[in-house]
Design a protein around this nucleic acid. Sequence first.
DNA 1: CGCGCGAAAAATGTGCACATTTTTTGGAGG
DNA 2: CCTCCAAAAAATGTGCACATTTTTCGCGCG
Lengths: 254, 254
Amino acid sequence: MATQRGRNGKGIGKGIGKGIGKANPAEDEAVYQAILHALLEGKLKAGVKLAEPPLADIFGVSRERIRKVLHRLGAERRLEMIPNRGARVPRPTLDDVRRVYEAHRVLEAGVLTQLVRHVDDALIEKLTAHLAEERAAATRGDRAASVRLSGAFHVHLVEALGNAELTRFLADLLSRSSVMVSVYEPATDSICAVDEHGAIVEALRARDVARAIAVSREHFLHVESRLHLDDDPAPVSEDLTSVFATVKPKRRKR
Amino acid sequence: MATQRGRNGKGIGKGIGKGIGKANPAEDEAVYQAILHALLEGKLKAGVKLAEPPLADIFGVSRERIRKVLHRLGAERRLEMIPNRGARVPRPTLDDVRRVYEAHRVLEAGVLTQLVRHVDDALIEKLTAHLAEERAAATRGDRAASVRLSGAFHVHLVEALGNAELTRFLADLLSRSSVMVSVYEPATDSICAVDEHGAIVEALRARDVARAIAVSREHFLHVESRLHLDDDPAPVSEDLTSVFATVKPKRRKR
DNA sequence: CGCGCGAAAAATGTGCACATTTTTTGGAGG
DNA sequence: CCTCCAAAAAATGTGCACATTTTTCGCGCG
């Protein structure tokens, strides 16, 4: 009912419309990125239903296109797919959040253990520079940058190992926790205190594994302790149009 | 319900019987499991092309069904999907394999660090019992069981933490390495020496983190050292029918 | 014998027309 | 006012007919 497109019969006058059965992989990717971005940005609140027809209308693509993207996001566990009932933004429990933080904590312990074997001046320098960035963002009160840089610190640590599998796993955890903060937002100033990050770098510089792990562990426990259950079920604005207001649809219904 | 029935407008009514457009989620799952199983079992060799038409024929389902499963396996990075060129069993390089083993090693270091805090008699007992199983399999020369139990040991370790995220990540790594052994198979007797597993349990019992990690690390390095590049490109039998010989198709072409 | 190079064949990608749910709606009855 | 229930409406699931590649094949030329 939405983007009804003249699909000319068999062979008659097919010449005109450039794209009839055209393959456009970039379009899939654009829709995927748009939804994923809205998800990571926290614009799509937990529990929101993502129905196919409205999304197809918003993005100006066929429903099958949307369907494929939705299922892909479901396979990545970024959306909750229920048979015959569509896709929803997952509503993580407090235990889910704790589990993600714990996984990050355990992973980082392993990363630090391995990292002290390969730490060199260049790495320390890079991390120190990053700390300076974090401090700058904190002092100027740039909360968005603080949150971003705070996550980036841990990414730098795992990236220093140069192992794509580990990097991917961490990215997965971070992206999941970023969605969660929209539900259980700490609401305090900086998520990760810069000082705690600095202590990790210090321990690394000293090649002190035990201290690095201890500091990292305390750091995570500190963050976890700040989580609080916002027991407000929230009305969740079901208005998808406003969420994807930035997208430029090729054609909208109206 | 079934207000309308006549569906075969032009298509020759070949599929008369019962379900025409029925929803059967179990069927998707069956196909998915069958292909995944063949993949993990090593029956599907690296580099093999998984074309849709033959698979649809083998499993007796529509091509769309196959297509969906293939894309799902691609999203899970178990198959390599190339636009317009279909799905192939990935052909991991030696570096890929090393990366997976390293990731497992790093992860286990973190797991052990966390585990010594929660280790109790029940866990030690469970692991000891597992070691007995491994020894039994080794002494009676049951290679298949040895390989399986060897992987299970590490699963037990991470499961002891009770963190689904970590368990999933390990399962992911293990499943990937299991595919890889078909290319770079150690070909020696037991993949993981039981003694090395026993040493890990011993260190856990003593609550000695450093030793546990050191032993685990040596263990993995030992396994990694056995990897060898089988530079034989292998003719890879492209015969999918024999691979899925066990499946009972509802209808086969010829 | 190898090497293009076009045409045929096969395989992948996509919109659409339905079937099959699920959800909403609108009363009748308590 | 609330509950229950059947019918309508909406949303999801699936096969199919193509369009669009990609791959294979055949054949003439150097």
